[in-house]
């Protein structure tokens, strides 16, 4: 379980404050979408959770242990695949590199890499170099790299921000499929409202910078989702409108909970209930 209390961060000593007393609790196995206006500090939040930056205030714990430095079983998929993949390594070696930390032999690492590549639909790209693949395929490689690492918490920082619309839908479904089969906790940061509702078990809306949690909505959509059908559901349309309004700074209207929202398992989890912004 990931617990964030009073997370505050400002860059350069007393400079720009980007996070201001943010509270968030994510139970194991949940897929949480985090949306907010661009430049609101979503990426800073992820970097704090990943232990890449030390926040100036607040507490972060993962399974009860405070986060200092990069946690052991956490992986990140960055938006900019072209800069987070290593162009001098083949696709397979890119995926296999982090597995050194898992104490595996060379052949085990290779096998695990091939398996992960297969699971994202890249059976025969292992020997190629990342830059020989299309953007969408490169992002699949970064997802495969994260999967092969078998983290319990997967952070995705606008993972589909740099791919075309069709690829984006394919990758969204890939994330859903991974979530179903691997049962890992996923935090997906996005600025796409549609995507946040389609992918998430729960949507957390952040305010304009300095960021705190503006609203926290459960998504009551059936767990098996489909690009055409799901997006056509009235619940989807309504929730999307609600999130859209919140992102633009609107206040949460009490009682306007998504029509037909099922009290899904996720909604019972602590901190996942819809509550007005403080």
């Amino acid at each position: 379980m990931l617990q964030i209390t009073g997370l505050t961060h400002s860059y350069g000593g007393d400079g720009l404050k980007v996070l201001d007393g943010l509270d968030l609790t994510v139970p194991d196995g949940q897929l949480v979408s985090i949306v907010g206006p661009s430049g609101c500090g979503k990426s800073t939040l992820l970097r704090c959770i990943a232990g890449l930056i030390q926040p100036t205030g607040g507490r972060l714990t993962l399974d009860g242990r405070p986060i200092n430095g990069v946690p052991d079983d956490l992986a990140v998929v960055f938006q900019d695949y072209s800069r987070s993949l290593f162009p001098w390594l083949s696709v397979r070696d890119n995926v296999a590199l982090p597995l050194r930390r898992r104490g595996k032999s060379r052949s085990e690492r290779r096998a695990a890499a091939e398996e992960a590549l297969e699971s994202v639909g890249l059976h025969d790209a292992g020997r190629k170099y990342p830059w020989q693949l299309s953007g969408g395929m490169q992002q699949r490689v970064s997802i495969a790299r994260a999967l092969a690492y078998r983290p319990s918490l997967l952070l995705m920082d606008e993972p589909f921000g740099s791919v075309d619309a069709q690829t984006r839908e394919d990758l969204e479904d890939l994330v859903l499929q991974v979530h179903r089969t691997e049962k890992m906790t996923i935090l997906l940061v996005t600025h796409d409202i549609d995507e946040s509702v389609y992918v998430g078990d729960r949507v957390v809306v952040l305010n304009r910078s300095p960021a705190r949690v503006h609203a926290d909505l459960p998504v009551g959509l059936p767990s098996v989702r489909d690009q055409i059908d799901t997006r056509g559901l009235p619940e989807f349309v309504q929730l999307r409108a609600e999130v859209g309004r919140l992102v633009r700074g609107g206040a949460r209207v009490p009682g306007a909970a998504p029509v037909g929202a099922q009290p899904a398992g996720v909604a019972e989890a602590k901190g996942a209930g819809a509550k007005p912004a403080p």
Binding site: R47, A50, L52, V70, D72, L74, A75, V76, F78, D80, R83, S84, F86, L89, L97, P98, R100, R101, R145, Y149
Partner: peptide, 19 residues
């Protein structure tokens, strides 16, 4: 971003220098 990626995946100091 490449260095951050390596850190996230727990690539050690020496290995980070070499790879």
């Amino acid at each position: 971003l490449q260095l951050e990626t390596a850190r996230v995946f727990g690539v050690g100091r020496f290995r980070r220098l070499v790879t």
